[in-house]
């Protein structure tokens, strides 16, 4: 993982649904299982890489299960695939299981909630470039906002398994406790020990929670929580790396902190995309070039979605 981990063999594969668990009012965790060539293709997928799911033929949930605010969106027929990264990947007996953390926000994710065990889904992947580990790092800080927590859990698993000399700490932010996409927070004793979230504790990774309204953990933006932590830390900045995924305004703040403190930082960007394989040119991300003041568009799908934060021109 010292190099960017790129997709092995991209393709269209069929996956079988093995679970679709609701873990919060709007949050679900979908399990998909690949066998054969798909299992091989997804076995080595890196944290932050993604896949495109075809949900166009998936039925809507029953009317009484559709939230009022999505009743209008539910009327929309969808055409394009939907991109998702992974929260966990496991391989067993020549099969690869991947878990997707998703939030119900529109006609695609609404359809996704009606997937159940044994359904099949067409998946294009693995796509894009995931997080990578620069040489000489001793501390990794995983900073997420909302749904950004998904790929960072996958990253926590990889870091703790393959990079044991790196200390990992996770920071999970959201507007309110209800908008944190985790099953249940750990008890007070664990929290005092620095373990707020079971999803990170399972890898032995410390985690902190920040909510804008103070309904859980640190009261304020997760970036302030990060700043406070950095203020107390005696680790050398050059030995640290920040990995971040979440809303772009948050990523911009994380990038600013990283720049000011001279810490390596990688951000996972999000764009509307049609194909995910580099042909439609929809998902442009403005990036700086070596020449001062000059920028070019790179593609979120094939150049990213994970970028070095220094290269991104943030507008928010």
């Amino acid at each position: 993982m010292s190099e960017k981990c790129s997709a092995a063999k991209r393709g269209v594969y069929w996956a079988t649904v093995c679970g679709n668990k609701q873990i919060g009012e709007r949050f679900y965790r979908l399990g998909l299982e690949f066998s054969g060539a798909g299992a091989e293709a997804f076995a080595k997928i890196g944290a932050g890489q993604f896949a495109q799911l075809d949900l166009s033929e998936t039925a809507l949930p029953p009317a009484d299960k559709i939230p009022d605010e999505l009743a209008d969106a539910a009327e929309r027929k969808i055409l394009l695939r939907r991109p998702f990264s992974f929260v966990d990947v496991t391989t067993k007996h020549n099969k690869t299981s991947v878990d997707i953390l998703y939030c119900v926000i529109g006609p695609g994710s609404l359809r996704m909630t009606s997937l159940s065990a044994k359904d099949t889904v067409s998946v294009i992947g693995p796509l894009g470039n995931g997080f990578w580990v620069p040489d000489g790092k001793k501390t990794a800080l995983l900073v997420s906002g909302g749904m950004g927590a998904g790929p960072l859990q996958h990253l926590a698993k990889i870091l703790t398994a393959d990079f044991r000399d790196i200390n990992v700490t996770a920071f999970a932010g959201a507007k309110t406790v209800e908008e944190l996409p985790f099953e249940r927070q750990l008890d007070e004793i664990s929290q005092q020990l620095g373990f707020w979230l079971r999803e990170f504790a399972r890898y032995g990774v410390e985690s902190l929670v920040a909510t804008d309204d103070g309904s859980s953990g640190f009261a304020g933006p997760v970036t302030d929580c990060l700043l406070e932590w950095l203020g107390k830390s005696d680790s050398a900045c050059e030995s640290m790396v920040i990995y971040s995924c979440g809303p772009e305004a948050m990523l911009a703040r994380v990038a600013k902190i990283a720049k000011e403190k001279n810490i390596d930082c990688q951000v996972s960007m999000e764009r509307r995309m049609a194909c995910g394989i580099g042909i439609c040119q929809s998902c442009a991300v403005e990036c700086k070039t070596d020449r001062p003041g000059e920028s070019i568009y790179k593609m979120c799908c094939t150049d990213g979605p994970v970028f070095n934060s220094k290269t991104i021109v943030f507008h928010s």
């Binding site: 764009r271 995309m273 040119q281 442009a284 568009y297």
Partner: peptide, 23 residues
């Protein structure tokens, strides 16, 4: 050509709009 600013696409009922701008 760098093409247009984003968003460059939006899905519509049974279709999509694109404004890539000859990137």
């Amino acid at each position: 050509r760098q093409g247009n600013a984003t968003p460059r696409i939006v899905e519509t009922d049974s279709g999509m709009l694109n404004a890539i701008g000859w990137a």
